[in-house]
Design a binder for these strands. Structure first.
Lengths: 258, 258
DNA sequence: GCAAAAGTGTTTAAAATACACCCATGC
DNA sequence: GCATGGGTGTATTTTAAACACTTTTGC
């Protein structure tokens, strides 16, 4: 909208009720998982037009009296069979460009969530209705960010915004714990940072830095046996309560310093 | 939604088209301004039910083919006469609780923006239709955060989320420049930080820290005469291009350190 | 001259970085 | 023993914080 000229007689005049229509409201979910030390995002191959055969985020329309968060959990379950924790769901934002869906105007609310590590997506054999995906898998983030994979709608935009948010939040909050099981080692936590930031961290300094942050992790009197070809047993830790902002940001080497 | 039981025969069965309805979509805007060294937010006193007479954020329904950002600019202009820059508009998120509006289900997309310092809101004498506010003013943030002022709908929640975001972004981005005019002094920039964070900063250390951050400000060969009872003239600076993430976060004393 | 605001210098404390080194295990 | 991963110690560099001090103006 051009800045309206101040000499307009009445600023709210000129509209009729027909100008204000109802909208289709949808949710799209960026479901993340770390597998083989790589950050991955669940993508579905669309079984119906538009963008039939193209890659997209799991998503769908919100029901009449359904909270947005519940819709996000529902569509992920319907399309992949994956159930994730309520606390591990966070909003990215609303995407409402009038042209974003070629069929009709849709405002979509994007969420991101963490899938349990063990979870593997599976198609719903019982239903192949509209919206049912043809195929789905956890795709490594580098493959998506390279641009080789074309995503439907504005989903590339949604993914980019989400990754920026998640990477930034790793610096300033205790978010990394969400990617870990209930009991975890400091190395597992470090692998989260390395997978999301996409680069190695000094294990010694990482350990100290985490333990210095109050309210991040608490020690357990348990140890994990070394896997593979040996190594000292690692102490297990549990997450402290709540999703907190760190008192001091966690230093991120992945961004060029001035 | 409870986690659905895995033995459900078909995950997508059981819905009919009637379950997916159309929604009213609105925008609400947290318009900020620094006046008398205080951060303030534009609030309108509602002229129509619900919450008639209560305080609320400027907002309204989105039109059929209107981008969300344009709707945000439009409703602020209609309700206050204030026009702000496109670049100074950022989304906070979508708020879609089924009970958030007592009349019908409304999904609102919240934005925050910066008003030019000189701008003062005025009612639209030409129109008193539905949605036209009865009164409006820039209310100091401490007054809102104290809880003495009750806000309509979930607007207290929107304001809280916005303030958290803006305060955090001052640390990690060059956001503060948006609150300044085209040419400004380092003290003016510091006053932005002090108003938003709500506490004093060391002027000497602040100056150095800003100048060390590449891509924040560029010097002009201009100086501002001291106001009031004297003082050394201050150099004027201009904002470097774009809204950038700082290479190193700006230290915030307002958050307790561990 | 004196007060006020802008801006620089200097000292001290704290934090990040790099990396050497010890610990406990599997084979 | 040796490789492997867990974990601690320590020297070095970088950054933040506190505040003394100089500069340039208005009155």
């Amino acid at each position: 909208m051009d800045p309206p000229s101040p000499e307009d007689p009445g600023r709210t005049s000129g509209y009729t009720l027909a100008d204000f229509s109802m909208f289709a409201v949808a949710v799209d979910v960026v479901l993340m998982s770390i597998q083989q030390r790589e950050l991955r995002i669940l993508l579905v191959q669309r079984g119906t037009p538009p963008y039939r055969g193209g890659w997209a985020l799991p998503g769908g329309l919100v029901m009449k009296s359904e909270p947005l968060e519940e819709a996000a959990q529902r569509v992920v379950y319907e399309q992949s069979g994956i159930v994730f924790r309520q606390g591990h769901l966070e909003q990215v934002g609303a995407y409402g460009d009038p042209q974003r869906d070629p069929r009709t105007r849709v405002v979509t609310v994007a969420f991101w969530a963490v899938a349990p590590q063990s979870s593997h997506p599976c198609l719903d054999s019982g239903s192949a209705g509209p919206g049912a995906p043809a195929y789905l898998e956890f795709v490594p983030v580098p493959e998506i960010e390279s641009g080789r994979l074309k995503l439907a709608f504005d989903h590339a935009h949604i993914v980019a915004d989400t990754l920026e948010r998640v990477r930034a939040n790793l610096e300033t909050t205790t978010l990394a714990r969400r990617f870990c099981p209930d009991e975890f080692t400091i190395s597992q936590l470090r692998e989260v940072y390395e997978a999301v930031w996409g680069g190695p961290l000094d294990a010694a300094n990482f350990q100290r830095r985490i333990l210095q942050s109050e309210g991040f992790v608490s020690p357990l009197e348990k140890w994990r046996r070394p896997a593979g070809r040996g190594g000292r047993p690692a102490r297990l830790w549990q997450a402290d309560d709540g999703h907190k902002r760190l008192s001091r940001p966690f230093p991120a080497p992945w961004r060029g310093r001035s």
